[in-house]
């Protein structure tokens, strides 16, 4: 994916090799680095947002309902969210289980 994008001729490179599409890293699905995945039990969740703010990979996003939505495309499975959830609402499970 990345490689195909990069194969531009020098004449088509932006001035100074700049990247003009902000946030284009979203094309890189870092979710495939993961061996474990956090699973949230919404019954326990108090919508505090710790999982959202403590995630280094910006995996959770706030929703209207007040819960936080997990995006498997980018979660690297570090487990910080599970450890920091004050209600132990998040558990890490092995991928494929």
């Amino acid at each position: 994916m990345a490689k195909v994008d990069a194969l531009v001729g020098w004449r088509n490179l932006e001035i100074g090799c700049a990247i003009t599409e902000p946030g284009s890293s979203r094309k890189l699905k870092t979710g495939d680095w993961r061996s474990q995945r956090p699973v949230t039990d919404r019954d326990k969740c108090i919508k505090c947002g710790m999982c959202w703010i403590y995630c280094p990979d910006i995996v959770y996003s706030p929703t209207k309902s007040g819960y936080f939505k997990w995006d498997g495309n980018y979660c690297k499975g570090c487990g910080i969210c599970a450890r920091e959830c004050p209600k132990d609402a998040i558990t890490m499970v092995m991928e494929g289980e």
């Binding site: 890189l28 280094p56 990979d57």
Partner: peptide
Amino acid sequence: IAQGHRACQGCGEVL
């Protein structure tokens, strides 16, 4: 910073 950055799993610096 958008998703898809290549920091190691659990990186506290990018956080």
